[in-house]
Design a binder for these strands. Structure first.
Length: 814
RNA sequence: GCAGAUGUGGCGGAAUUGGUAGACGCACAGGACUUAAAAUCCUGCGGUGGUUAAACACCGUGCCGGUUCGAUUCCGGCCAUCUGCACCA
């Protein structure tokens, strides 16, 4: 049958009946855990992005299976989250209903793609049998001191009476009603990811990940070595600042506090109170990105308070300013306008003194602000020291008076996991008037998310409105108690799902330790680079925390990481419904079949790069399929009708060389997720076979074997199509169960090779040599080539450069 | 703003460690087949100049400069575009 959607259906049915993709944990071959980031069931249909992520990486998994690995390739759904809840608010359809519907539709489509998942291992994070264990992990972290509660700001819309996600805040206003948002503090749960900052940083070197992603994580962790220094205020408070430049301490002319910090109230004088409060109110309306923008004019106000510089006793004013952030460093900054750009700008604007304490080491005139390191001046006994020495010496001296210490600071913040939302895993905590915070006993898990809840925004967490959910008895004292009303960030669910897959149906534990140690860590993880920082760092943290708690024996969840690119709309912009530039895969699949579509995605784009959608080439891919069908037919006819030879002449040798070259390159390319070039090589082989079939005499055996190889090489890339053609070749086994071919070095060798000859680096002509001849032999042939001799005669030759087997360059003087 | 990428023909994209720039394909043009068209097959295809045709010459990987016998690749400086920035997943 000619390739179409019908062929897809035929083989999907066959695969299902014969259980072709069943994973056997004790199966033959080295285990290989091949995982794609699971998807959020955002709609009833797979979009182009899903196809681009899952199609090619399924081909990779199939390739590995054919190479003899015992491939574990599961799929699931990251099902909790904001969009389902928003959709529910808009339409009244319950998140659980819409999510379940979407999951079953998406699963059906993934099956239609022909992906080789073993669905017996599916996980759905919104199901109690999964989130029970998410809650269990929360309890384990809590008991280990890795989950704690503290105040933190949220985006608050006063008119909708609800907390907003950052993405719901548009230019400082609420996306729903347009009113201005404010930052408001709430008591919320955190995971202590900062405890692992150093290990998360160090272990990056162990990982086979893209360097750019490692860099993102390095910057996200943001390690800096510096000092903590204590300034006492004139009214007896202590201000501990963090600085990497303790050497400039003598140049401090004021101190700045983050507007939100607790200390502000304590240092502000009656006279400045009004001004300070107004400023704090204003700052609460800005996002962090807006506040940090260097091009934004610095603002701030004087609190009326003063602090004493511990190194020289200077009395310096205390200001508040929004360029200081509460959650970086200590939230307090010593300002050295002479040696910091932001401080300089601020001091200039507010006419604060500027005191120079570092000069350039090479004695050159310095222009302020001078932010480089140098030699100290105006610093009393520290004059003449280098910045580096002074930094240490000053801190050590202060340490004796308990006013300073060397310390390491990380930009990484603890992970805020509380969400004031309905559609998430309830946090398994109970509040008792007598006993305080009480964790839900493990045997009482899961804390079920109630179905019947009013989740429309009206100022309260949705769960708070369910009396049935909220009211409970204290597990400790048996008295009346209430539940935590917040749910967990969906990143918590996705930070451990790769551990659940291998033991997805376990109802006694989150996962069996032996099984998880056998199947995890993930060998190849495929997903978008938008996850470079958050998901990928949270998952690493979770693995390390669970290791320390004794539940698993490895340090890192994902050994190798590959990012697929993004398919943009035809206009070059990110696809979005609002821009009206979305492209739906469905019509293409109905028209051409899933393999043509998958092959086109692989051939038409660089997998790691992506690019704007363009449907032009899809027709061409369909034609390639037709050519291969014709090739298979023709080869049968040719074998019957042409005169036969047993000779292995030049033509045969050439065909065999192309075949082996194709095997070699396709193996390398697929291994490296370079599907576009892998398919190009496959096309070359099919062209070579067609050429060979035009010969008068045909070596039947070589032709047949080469056609078989062509189809086997195609099998991971176009699985249904390859099965169909394989069957046409009279085979009964699945082509998917064939061994991936090996390169024959013998058949690969031989032939001619063109060595380019250059004149001053510019190509003149090529000299043809035997590929197998030695360096000396080649050199001999090149040197004696007429054209080379002529070049020597006609030019003032300085020297010849020969890179064996690569290039021959004649350098001449003009 | 900070951070991370990317930039190659008309288009998608190739090019090992610094070694023939443009593989493979699309589009286009010419030809074969056909009453004709489609499909298919064959040939050509970076630009400019040159020639009856070739040969050949020069230019060419965002822009400017550097290192090198030789740079799409390495270095410095610009420009443009895309992505992420901690409550989207």
């Amino acid at each position: 049958m000619e390739y179409s959607k019908k062929v897809d259906e035929k083989w999907q049915k066959e695969w299902k009946e014969k259980n072709a993709y069943k994973f056997d944990i004790n199966g033959k071959g080295e285990k290989l855990y091949c995982l794609e980031m699971f998807s959020y069931p955002s709609g009833a249909k797979l979009h182009l992005g899903h196809w681009f992520n899952y199609g090619p990486s399924d081909s990779f998994a199939r390739f590995k299976k054919m190479q003899g690995y015992n491939v574990f390739h599961p799929m699931g759904f990251d099902a909790f989250g904001l969009p389902a809840e928003n959709y529910a608010i808009k339409t009244g359809i319950h998140p659980e209903d819409s999510t379940k519907k979407n999951i079953s539709a998406m699963r059906k489509q993934l099956e239609e793609m022909g992906a080789s998942y073993d669905w017996d291992y599916m996980v759905e994070t919104c199901m109690p049998d999964y989130y029970k264990w998410t809650q269990w992990i929360f309890l384990k972290l809590y008991k280990a001191g890795l989950a704690y509660k503290k105040e933190a700001p949220v985006n608050w819309c006063d008119s909708c009476k609800t907390v907003l996600a950052n993405e719901q805040v548009i230019n400082g206003t609420c996306e729903r009603c347009g009113s201005e948002i404010k930052r408001k503090k709430l008591a919320q749960w955190f995971f202590k990811i900062t405890d692992y900052a150093e290990e998360l940083l160090q272990d990056l070197s162990k990982l086979d990940w893209p360097e750019s992603t490692k860099k993102v994580q390095t910057n996200w962790i943001g390690k800096s070595e510096g000092s903590e220094i204590v300034f006492e205020t004139t009214n007896g408070e202590k201000i501990t600042v963090f600085t990497t430049r303790a050497d400039t301490l003598n140049g401090v002319t004021y101190v700045v506090l983050a507007p939100e910090s607790e200390l502000v109230k304590k240092v502000t004088t009656e006279e400045h109170k009004k001004e300070v409060e107004d400023y704090i109110d204003k700052a609460s309306k800005l996002s962090e990105i807006e506040r940090l923008a260097v091009d934004k004019e610095k603002t701030g106000v004087f609190t009326g308070g003063y602090a004493i510089n511990p190194v020289n006793g200077d009395k310096v004013p205390i200001w508040i300013a929004d360029y200081v952030l509460e959650d970086y460093g200590t939230g307090y900054v010593m300002a050295v306008p002479a040696h910091d750009e932001r401080d300089y700008e601020f001091a200039s604007k507010y006419k604060l003194p500027i005191k120079e304490v570092v000069k350039s080491a090479d004695g050159e005139e310095t222009k302020l602000p001078f932010i480089e390191k140098g030699i100290l001046v105006n610093s009393g006994k520290y004059d003449g020291l280098s910045s580096e020495d002074a930094r240490r010496k000053i801190t050590e001296d202060l340490e004796k008076e308990e006013k300073g210490r060397l310390t390491t600071n990380y930009r990484l913040k603890d992970w805020l996991v509380s969400r004031q939302r309905y559609w998430g895993a309830p946090i398994p905590i109970i509040y008792c008037d007598k006993c305080g915070i009480v964790p839900v006993p493990e045997e009482d898990l899961p804390v079920l998310l109630p179905y019947d809840v009013e989740f429309k925004p009206d100022g309260e967490s949705p769960l708070k409105k369910s009396k049935e959910f909220m009211n409970c008895t204290c597990p400790k004292c048996g008295g009346k108690a209430t539940r935590e009303a917040d749910t967990l960030d969906t990143f918590v669910c996705s930070s451990w799902y790769y551990l659940r897959y291998p033991d997805a149906k376990n109802d006694k534990e989150a996962f069996n330790k032996d099984i998880v140690n056998k199947i995890d860590p993930v060998d190849v993880y495929v997903g978008g680079k938008e996850h470079a920082a958050m998901h990928l760092i949270y998952a690493r943290f979770m693995t390390k925390a669970l290791r320390d708690l004794g539940y698993l024996d490895f340090d890192e969840p994902f050994k190798r990481l590959v990012h697929q690119g993004m398919i943009l709309g035809p206009d070059g912009n990110k696809m979005s419904k609002s821009k009206g530039n979305t492209v739906s895969p469905e019509e293409y699949i109905d028209e051409y079949g899933s393999d043509v579509f998958r092959m086109y995605l692989m051939f038409g784009f660089d997998y790691k790069q992506g690019g704007p959608w363009n449907e032009k080439g899809i027709e061409a891919m369909a034609k390639f399929f037709t050519r291969v069908e014709k090739l298979v037919e023709d080869s049968k006819v040719v074998c019957k009708e042409s005169s036969e030879t047993n000779n292995i002449g030049d033509k045969e040798k050439e065909l065999l060389r192309t075949k082996n070259q194709t095997i070699k390159l396709m193996t390398e390319n697929i291994e490296d997720f370079r599907f576009n070039t892998a398919i190009a090589r496959n096309m070359e082989l099919s062209n070579a076979i067609n050429d060979y079939m035009k010969e008068k005499e045909i070596n039947k055996e070589i032709l047949e074997k080469t056609v078989e190889t062509l189809i086997i090489l195609l099998a991971p890339l176009a699985p249904h199509f390859a099965e169909e053609e394989w069957q046409k070749l009279g085979k009964e086994e699945f082509v998917y169960n064939q061994k991936w071919p090996q390169v024959s070095e013998k058949e690969l060798s031989g032939g001619k090779k063109d060595i380019p000859v250059q004149l001053n680096g510019k190509l003149k002509f090529c000299v043809s040599v035997d590929a197998e001849s030695s360096t000396e032999e080649m050199l001999e042939i090149i040197k004696n080539d007429e054209r080379v001799i002529k070049l020597h005669e006609n030019n003032n030759v300085v020297k010849d450069i020969y890179v064996p087997g690569r290039i021959y360059n004649i350098v001449v003087k003009k």
